[in-house]
């Protein structure tokens, strides 16, 4: 057992864990944040995507121990109380959500992409979410949602 401390959605969590525990298990089983999903457990589907120190990672491929000291954002950290993030609003507006299982990961990949490049072109958007599989939607509405989110974020920044 080793002790690790992770900052998840702005809160510090210290736990004694098995060194082989995956980050996804730390998030779901130790901290009980169930919004991060497991689809494959081997880095293929992106359902388990979280943002770690500003970059997306597949939390099924990261050991919790190696994330010691890291800052993590999960889907639960995205909305501010009842106030939805513009990406969430956009996904709702355009009908980008079907079964929903890919959506937490998809939204976090979108956030990481737009945090880095708010003006991402369609090709860059597609590349940005290429690690996230969606079996329901066919992606069209998701890409549209990302474009609407871009506009929403740009407008809100101009309003500031």
């Amino acid at each position: 057992m080793i002790e690790v401390t992770l900052k998840i959605n702005g809160k510090m969590y210290t736990r004694k864990i098995n060194p082989m525990l995956r980050l996804i298990d730390f998030i779901r089983d130790e901290i009980k944040l169930k919004g991060t999903k497991e689809g494959c457990g081997e880095g293929e589907c992106g359902a388990c995507t979280v943002i770690m120190n500003g970059k997306t990672v597949n939390s099924c491929l990261v050991l919790a121990a190696s994330a010691n000291g890291a800052e993590i954002t999960t889907i639960e950290g995205l909305s501010n109380g009842d106030h939805l993030h513009p990406i969430q609003e956009a996904f709702i507006e355009v009908g980008a959500v079907q079964c929903g299982y890919c959506i937490p990961g998809m939204i976090l990949s979108t956030k990481a992409l737009l945090d880095e490049n708010l003006d991402a072109t369609e090709a860059q958007i597609k590349e940005g979410i290429s690690g996230n599989l969606c079996r329901c939607t066919g992606y069209t509405k998701i890409v549209e949602g990302v474009k609407i989110a871009q506009k929403k974020i740009i407008n809100s920044q101009e309003g500031d």
Binding site: L33, K34, G35, T36, K37, T74, I75, E76, L78, S79, L84, Q88, F91, I92, V97, C99, G100, Y101, I103, P104, I107
Partner: peptide, 11 residues
């Protein structure tokens, strides 16, 4: 949809 975009939907 609200549960699904916020991670609150229960599978």
């Amino acid at each position: 949809v609200y549960g699904k975009i916020s991670g609150k939907a229960v599978y």
